[in-house]
């Protein structure tokens, strides 16, 4: 009754025109014939992709800072925040001479996201205090084996030269937050 479209079923004898089937069949084929000329809403996927939002939550990226050093400090807040328990990592200590690779003394030696577990909620992105992990508008590619869906640092960390633009994901609140220069990671 919510939609006011429910019909009361009446089990009555069919009238002659109903028993002949033909009027019903004719109206049926008229309906299907009209559909013959309707435009299919299909998007031929690999050739064409659907237009997706700038804040689409797709494949993650581990950002580097301006100098090209990895921002992630392996604090594990993303893994704690993750409701699907898709993120695992091990921490490593930065050695002398690696300052251009890792921004702080501690860094993620391994960082893995299981893309089959991930529900793309974006809580890791919210939890990250270092502006290190972001979701992007890239779609996870399909594959045949489960192992290939565990993305390691090789797939997650952005290239030094091929930076991934996440400025559209950074909302007003994020940008305002970054103005607080007293917070160490905004320096």
């Amino acid at each position: 009754m919510l939609t006011n479209r429910s019909k009361l079923v009446v089990k009555k004898e069919m009238s002659l025109s109903e028993r002949l089937y033909i009027p019903a069949i004719l109206s049926g084929i008229a309906i299907t014939f009209r559909h013959l000329f309707k435009k299919a809403p299909t998007v031929r996927y690999p050739e064409k992709t659907r237009e997706i939002s700038a804040v689409w939550r797709g494949q993650h990226v581990l950002k580097r800072d301006d100098k090209g050093a990895e921002r992630c400090t392996a604090c594990g807040l993303c893994a704690v925040a993750c409701p699907a328990e898709a993120i695992t990592m091990t921490a490593g200590e930065r050695k002398k001479g690696e300052e251009n690779l890792y921004r702080e003394e501690k860094y993620a030696a391994t960082y893995e996201i299981n893309m089959l577990r991930c529900i793309f909620c974006g809580l890791c992105e919210e939890a990250c205090p270092k502006e290190a992990i972001f979701l992007t508008d890239r779609i996870i590619e399909t594959d045949y084996s489960r192992d290939s869906f565990i993305y390691g640092k090789d797939k997650l960390v952005e290239g030094v030269t091929e930076r991934i633009d996440v400025t559209k994901r950074q909302t007003q609140q994020v940008l305002a937050f970054k103005q607080h220069k007293q917070l160490s990671h905004n320096k």
Partner: peptide, 11 residues
């Protein structure tokens, strides 16, 4: 079948 159901069919 595809056209009648607003699909594309084998292509």
């Amino acid at each position: 079948a595809a056209f009648l159901q607003d699909r594309i069919g084998p292509d």
